[in-house]
Structure formats: structure tokens, C-alpha cells
Design a protein around this nucleic acid. Structure first.
Length: 802
RNA sequence: GCUGGUGUGGCGGAACGGCAGACGCACACGACUCAAAAUCGUGCGGGAAACCAUGUGGGUUCAAAUCCCACCACCAGCACCA
């Protein structure tokens, strides 16, 4: 049998598509509906793409191509998320400019993507580090600022005495990943965006989307809305502070309080604390830990008592000790908690460690001597309060309400919501990012750069390494820093922090709609034409960050009338990762990286794409296999060679198989079940080989079915067989009449075990089926004694219970 | 620890209340060939059988890989969120 030559065919068609501008779309195409298929744009690392990345690109390309054949006007764009730490570090290592590194990496990516034969509209390509693009990122930042959603706030940053401010990923076990020195947490003024203002809407509006359920769940949990009560506590020192609790029903069980060591409460209490040396030492220890370490690695419940001062429980006037404990974070809630060891395991362990005796059980129904009796155990079980004065005897749920009302009436408590989500730290002390377009004037304070002066471009400089003091490298460049105040015209200094990598990626899908607009980030008409994105594909790791940031960003633009939609993405899916053949993540150091270009050279892009679709469920993790591409190549050859057995008229015996395939492949692509779509095409191929003939019209339809996955070979077959221009082909429709079976095979069970399979008419009645089954010896063998019950599920099963 | 997810032949996987193992890989055999590769075809969970098999143990059901409860293992993300 002949083998086709993928290299020749693929080059030919890729060239042709380019010349014809086949995949360039207009925002409006008369008579066609728009569809927007989006895949997260790649971060152009120096490593290039491996076969793991190919999976989502080729899969979404298949979706886009099918929609196009179905008659939609499809936007399927591509670009590069070009700002970021990796490019900067590579540049430093190679002593080049980040701009050069990015240009080089983008070229590699583009070559790889184009060899795959993606149906991308390259005329809309964007790059977030292009001044024409980041001008609008800066412009949008200014809108956040002007609407009070951006401000400077003191935040804790990772700090290394040698390398300056570090990203979380640059800290490992409390040490700097570059030089190995111990890192600390240092407070620093940072720009933040108030995403928490949108917390409720970010949860509630998920109802307007069709994201996969686990993606919605992840976002809801990440935002972490909790309803509770903020209660004021007095102290013997006369200083008051508030705590936040979701378990107000346990307030009579308080035996101590815990405050964040680095919070403002400790500062206010300082004059009254008699063991300040000890407390101050504990603060230093805390500064060495990141929030994550404070939460995860602090299994020992470290803490220190603030001696000389006691807190007063507002419900009964009881005095309890106050501790500083690093498991309490200054940034969450009020930075203080009430501790009830009898009903909170964390408090229980803290009390045990610090020998705080006298645990008070206030909810009956559990034993609290060895372990706390927590809310997950007592809520909704009708448990009642004990040891709680006038609330004793009430059911937990009632008591919760009554205690809250009582405290609110007394004016010392407020119902409140707290969010796990914190505001978005938007400053980076790095070179390779969008400069934040703000100017500081001693007289006028922070002033936005006038919009007509945008973009504030990144100066091209030799030395852009991070600063040891923790300042941005831009701060060293006088010509950049020194400017005039837009307000008073006096001397002023530019902000030298840059934006995080998440900035440019928060609105890139909007720019694709109108990529060359120099007057606005995208015209309202273009946005209305394409938004919301119909299908957005991206990695699971972005579910809680990028996806949330992008939704927040859009909501803000919607509020100020610049986005036409409340939610930017209608549906969101995440592909499973492709591991190396040895079952671990592809990485250069492990030597299991497969370059898609190598595979394409051997078997062609079509075979690679088909194998990527077939290798497993799209949402699950799968292992790469070299043999897989070979099997896909084999399938394509089998389809290719059907040309030799072509007959003029349709082969009736194939009607069922072909129509079944049309139905199954159509539904499977719609449902992102690419693996079973390919399996169906294989099954149908086997049928065709059994008969060893296929009608022209049948072949044309069958080839169309594989074309979203193997577009090059499909167009070549069309040309060779004289099927006309592929771009005029429409997606085949199912002839349901060919799928109607008159006879079906029905499994017959006795007591739930299959004993025989009988052939019956598809529309046979229960009695008819029963009578036929009871003539089969295999069935009769097991039907002994009376038949107690007969279950017949039409076309599915017949079950005798004896 | 928390959150989300996953456990099915030698392997990748399918089925997601109704014949477990579709489809493919690997393997074996046959055809073609001087021969090999390629190709085409046949077989392929275990067991002599009764039967046993979808991580483990329970439960619901006429019927469970699928639904419920408990547990174990693995993967990913993380900020002990009071």
C-alpha cells in the first residue's frame, strides 16, 4: 500500500492558506453568525513548545475549523504574553535585552505553531510587551485609579538582602532560590487593585457562565466568602480591638485571644506589654516566614503571650490572656481571633502547646477532652448550648442569631462578610513589565500621567537587574524618573514599579477584536461583535488567578461602559496536562521533552494532531507516547488509500456506519470528546475496509469528518478526487432514517446476570420479547422455579428475577 | 492541613445506572514476500470450569466502574481564612 507524503502536502496547503488569507476574519460577515474560540496565549519561554502544549492548540483548532465548516464566522486568534520574569532572567543570564530574548522566543513559537497548520488569523497577532499594546494596559490602569480602585498600600513582600524583592516562586523553604540566603517578609508600599470590591459579583455572576463545574467551585472557594460577626473586645489596658468570627455561638467558650504578631493590635498594646523583648523576638521570627509557611509549615502552633494585658469577653466580663500567634494573618479579617479550644481544633492544639487550661465546652453532644468538637460536627445536628448564661438550652442555629442580635443591639458587634480573596498586588520591582503610569509630586501627591502622554515606555538600558535595596531597576535611571508634575508643573518623580505579568493578559482577548485600533483599546462595535468569548481554553493553574483577574477587569470595564458584557467568557475548559512517556512532567532536565517539529518531520502535523486528540480524555492527564503518532499516521494512510476503492454510487451497506459517524463525531467535538470522535472514525474506517469500497459522496463526507483534526490531508484528498474547493464544503448532516434499526440485539439477564443475547424487532412489545427469551436454552437453564418479576427496559435489557 | 481532581487488562483508554474492557498500542498467528519492513486479516482480562474481575470496605438497586457512606493511594493548586 502507498503511503502519503505529509511534508509535501502540509507545506503546500499551509502556503495556500496563507496566500488566500483563508483564516483572516472580518468583524462582520453578512449572513454568518460570529463565534469566538480562544486559547490562552503562550508565554514565550526560551524552551519553545513541546508536544504537551500542542494538545490544546490542535484541539481548539479542531473546534474552530468545525465551526467554520458549519458556516460560522470564526475568530481564532493568537498572540504572546511577553512580559514576565522568565524572559528577564534569561536576558540577564545571556547578557542580552529582554526585548531581544522575547523577539527570538516568539519567532520559535510562531514557527512551531504554524507548522501545526493552525487556522489562526495571524493578522490579529498581539504582543503584550509592544508599546502599542501596553499603552492601553496603562490607560486601563488609569481608569482603575480614576475610579478609586487603585491605591498604594503597605504590603508584605519577600525580601532577600542580596537580591532584593523576590517573587513567591523565587523563594524556596524560606531561602532565596538565586543565592540561597534566608529571606524575610518586609513591608513595602505597593499599588493594589481592589478586586475584593467585586468579590460578591465574581461569585454571583458565575451563574451567567457555562464554565465546567469544578472551575466554578474552585473560584468560589478561592474567593471564600464567609458570613460572620465582627465583635469589639476591650482590654485591661484600655485599648480596644475587634475580632472576626463565623462561630459566634461559641463566644462563652473563649479562654484566650490570638492576634497577628505583625498586626496593628500588637503595636497599639506595646506600651502595656511587660515582656516586649520576647514579643519583639517572636515578631522577627515571624518576618522570616511567608504566609504559606505560617499556615502550612507551622504545625507547632508557635506563639507568645502578651503579658501585662488581658482581654475582656464582652458577654460575661471574663478576663482572658492575649497571645501573638503567627497562624493569625494581619491581612485577613481584623488580624485577631477569639480562641475556643473546646470547639476549634487549631485553638485546642494552641492551648495544649502553651498550657492554657480550663477549656470550656459550650455546645453539647461531643467529647472535648481529646479533640475539639467543631462546627462541621455540631452544625445542623440540633445540638444545644451549655454554659452560656441566658443562651443555654438554645439550638446552635438559634443561638447564633440571638447572640449576634444581642451584641449588635449593644453596639459592640456588626454582621460582616469576609473574603479569603485579598486585593490584587499590582506592583513589581522589576524591569520587564509595563511601567505604572503615575507621577509623584511633593506638593500634589500621586498624579496620573495624562492620557495623551501614554504610553510611558520602558527605557532601553544596559543594566536592568533587580535592585538589592528592593527598589525597581527603573529607579536608577534619572532620565526616566525625573519629570514634571502634570498638576502643578513642578519637579516630580515617576513611579518606577512595573505591572505584574497578569496585567496584559487580563484584557488581551478584547484587543484581538480590534488589534490595530490606535484611538481606543478596542471599538465598541468590535467588542459587541465578538464578546462574550464562546469557548475559552486554558490551564487549570490559571483557574484562580488569571481567570479571576480577567473577569474582574472586564466587570470594571463593563461598569464604566467600555465592555458590552457582564461576563467575558461564556464557557471555560481546561485541558489535562501531557506528561512525558515516563509519566512525569516534560522538562529539559529530565530529558523527556518531545519537540513537535521532530514528530512533524517524521509523521506530519496531521498525524500529530490526530494522536493528540486520540490519546485520552481531553480533561485528563495523559502520557506522551511515540507509538501513538505512528498509529495516527496509519489511520490517515488508511483513509488516504480509500481513494483506490472509490465507486460512483453510495454503498448502501455503509449508510449506517457513515451516518453513525457523522452523528457521533459532530456531538463529540461539540462536547470536547475528541478521543471518542477519533475512535469513531477508526471504527468507520474498519467498516469501509471490510467492504473494501466506498461511494464518492460518502467518502467526501467521511473526509470532512476528519478534516478538523487532519486539515491538510483532507484538502489534498478533495483536490485529488475532484470534490471541489474544500472551503465550499459544508458539514455533513445526519440522515436519521439510515440509523433506524429494525432488529436489535438485546441482552437477557436472569437475576441480574447476562445469560444470553437475543435478536428481536426494535419495536417488539414486552410480552413478545419475554416469549422469545424464554425459548432460549441458555436462559431456560437458569430460569428455575417461579418467575417473580420481569424487568424490560426497551432496547436496553430484559431481566428475569426467579 | 485546605481546595480541586484521579484510581478500569501488559499499556493509553471506552462505557458514566443496563452485555465492563469500544477504539488504539504492544504481543501472537495467518496472508503477501526469496526475506524483512510496510500492508491486509484473525486472536488477545484471569480461570479447566463454576465463576472471578473497574483502588479497599460497606450501602442503595432487579441491575453499580457509574449513585451514597467510610477508608487508602496518587496528581495538581494553595494564603491554617478563624
Amino acid at each position: 500500500m502507498k503511503q502519503y507524503n505529509p511534508a509535501e502536502i502540509e507545506n503546500k496547503w499551509q502556503q495556500k492558506w496563507k496566500e488566500e488569507k483563508r483564516f483572516e476574519v472580518q468583524n462582520h460577515q453578512p449572513g454568518k453568525q460570529n463565534r469566538y474560540v480562544l486559547i490562552e496565549f503562550p508565554y514565550p519561554s526560551g524552551k519553545g513548545l513541546h508536544t504537551g502544549h500542542v494538545r490544546s492548540y490542535s484541539a481548539m483548532d479542531a473546534v474552530a475549523r468545525k465551526l467554520r465548516i458549519q458556516g460560522y464566522n470564526v475568530l481564532f486568534p493568537m498572540g504572546c504574553d511577553a512580559f514576565g520574569l522568565e524572559a528577564e532572567r534569561t536576558a540577564i543570564r545571556e547578557k542580552k535585552l529582554p526585548q531581544e530574548i522575547v523577539a527570538r522566543n516568539i519567532a520559535t513559537f510562531k514557527k512551531q505553531l504554524q507548522k501545526l497548520g493552525l487556522s489562526v488569523d495571524w493578522s490579529r497577532e498581539i504582543n503584550t510587551s509592544d508599546p502599542d499594546y501596553y499603552k492601553w494596559t496603562q490607560w486601563q490602569f488609569l481608569q482603575f485609579y480614576k475610579h478609586g480602585l487603585a491605591e498604594k498600600r503597605e504590603m508584605l513582600v519577600n525580601y532577600c538582602p542580596n537580591c532584593g524583592v523576590l517573587a513567591n516562586e523565587e523563594v524556596e523553604d524560606g531561602k532565596c532560590c538565586q543565592c540561597g540566603r534566608d529571606t524575610t517578609q518586609k513591608p513595602k508600599e505597593q499599588w493594589i487593585l481592589k478586586i475584593t470590591n467585586y468579590a460578591d459579583r465574581l461569585i454571583d455572576d458565575l451563574a451567567l457562565t457555562n464554565y465546567m463545574p469544578h472551575i466554578k467551585t474552585s473560584q468560589i472557594n478561592w474567593i471564600g466568602r464567609s458570613e460572620g460577626v465582627e465583635v469589639d473586645f476591650a482590654t485591661t489596658a484600655g485599648v480596644n480591638f475587634s475580632i472576626f468570627t463565623t462561630c459566634i455561638e461559641t463566644i462563652y467558650g473563649i479562654t484566650f485571644m490570638v492576634v497577628a504578631p505583625d498586626g496593628k493590635i500588637v503595636k497599639e498594646l506595646k506600651p502595656y506589654i511587660t515582656n516586649w523583648d520576647e514579643v519583639s523576638e517572636y515578631q522577627k521570627q515571624t518576618a522570616k516566614k511567608s504566609d504559606f509557611m505560617r499556615c502550612e509549615l507551622n504545625k507547632d502552633k508557635s506563639g507568645v503571650q502578651l503579658k501585662g494585658v488581658m482581654a475582656i469577653n464582652p458577654v460575661n466580663g471574663k478576663q482572658v490572656p492575649i497571645y501573638a500567634g503567627d497562624f493569625v494573618l494581619a491581612s485577613y479579617g481584623t488580624g485577631a481571633v477569639m480562641a475556643v479550644p473546646a470547639h476549634d481544633q487549631r485553638d485546642f492544639e494552641f492551648a495544649a502547646k502553651h498550657n492554657i487550661g480550663g477549656n470550656i465546652q459550650v455546645i453539647s453532644g461531643g467529647d472535648v477532652t481529646e479533640h475539639a468538637f467543631e462546627k462541621t460536627d455540631y452544625l445542623g445536628k440540633g445540638c444545644i448550648l451549655i454554659n452560656s448564661e441566658q443562651f443555654t438550652g438554645q439550638i446552635v442555629e438559634e443561638a447564633k442569631k440571638n447572640i449576634t442580635d444581642y451584641l449588635v443591639k449593644k453596639g459592640i458587634a456588626r454582621k460582616n462578610q469576609n473574603y479569603r480573596l485579598s486585593d490584587w498586588c499590582f506592583s513589581r520591582q522589576r524591569y520587564w513589565g509595563e511601567p505604572i503610569p503615575m507621577v509623584y509630586c511633593d506638593k500634589c501627591g500621586w498624579q496620573p500621567v495624562p492620557e495623551d502622554q501614554l504610553p510611558v515606555t520602558l527605557p532601553i538600558v544596559d543594566n536592568y537587574e533587580p535592585d538589592k535595596e528592593g527598589n525597581s531597576p527603573l529607579a536608577r535611571i534619572d532620565s526616566f524618573v525625573n519629570t514634571t508634575c502634570p498638576c502643578c508643573g513642578g519637579v516630580a518623580k515617576r513611579e518606577t514599579d512595573t505591572m505584574p505579568g497578569w496585567a496584559g493578559s487580563s484584557w488581551y482577548y478584547m484587543r484581538y477584536c480590534d488589534p490595530n485600533n490606535s484611538k481606543e483599546f478596542a471599538s465598541s462595535d468590535a467588542l459587541k461583535a465578538w464578546l462574550p468569548v464562546n469557548l475559552y481554553n486554558g490551564g487549570n493553574e490559571h483557574t484562580t488567578r488569571h481567570l479571576l483577574f480577567a473577569r474582574f477587569w472586564n466587570k470594571f470595564l463593563f461598569d464604566i461602559g467600555l465592555s458590552p458584557v457582564k461576563e467575558p467568557f461564556d464557557s471555560r475548559v481546561s485541558q489535562g496536562i501531557v506528561l512525558g512517556a515516563n509519566g512525569v512532567k516534560m522538562s529539559k532536565s529530565l530529558g523527556n521533552v518531545v519537540d513537535p517539529l521532530d514528530v512533524i518531520n517524521q509523521y506530519g502535523a496531521d498525524a500529530l494532531r490526530v494522536w493528540e486528540a486520540f490519546m485520552g480524555d481531553y480533561f485528563e492527564t495523559v502520557n506522551w507516547s511515540d507509538d501513538g503518532t505512528k498509529s495516527a499516521f496509519r489511520l490517515l494512510n488508511r483513509i488516504w488509500n480509500m481513494k483506490e476503492v472509490l465507486v460512483e454510487n453510495n454503498v448502501t451497506e455503509l449508510d449506517y456506519a457513515i451516518n453513525h459517524a457523522i452523528k457521533k463525531v459532530t456531538e463529540d467535538i461539540d462536547n470536547i470528546k475528541f478521543n471518542t470522535a477519533i475512535a469513531e472514525i477508526m471504527t468507520c474506517t474498519n467498516e469501509i475496509y471490510k467492504l473494501n469500497k466506498i461511494g464518492k459522496a460518502q467518502y467526501k463526507n467521511f473526509v470532512t469528518l476528519i478534516s478538523p483534526f487532519a486539515p491538510h490531508i483532507a484538502e489534498e484528498i478533495f483536490e485529488e478526487c475532484g470534490f471541489g474547493e474544500f472551503k465550499d464544503q459544508t458539514w455533513p448532516t445526519v440522515d436519521e432514517s439510515k440509523l433506524v434499526l429494525t432488529q436489535i440485539e438485546l441482552p437477557v439477564q436472569v437475576n441480574g446476570k447476562v445469560r444470553a443475547v437475543i435478536k428481536v424487532a426494535a419495536d417488539a412489545s414486552a410480552d413478545e420479547v419475554k416469549n422469545i427469551a424464554l425459548q432460549v436454552t441458555e436462559v431456560l437453564k437458569y430460569v428455575t422455579g417461579d418467575i417473580k418479576k420481569v424487568i424490560y427496559v426497551p432496547k436496553k435489557i430484559l431481566n428475569f428475577i426467579v
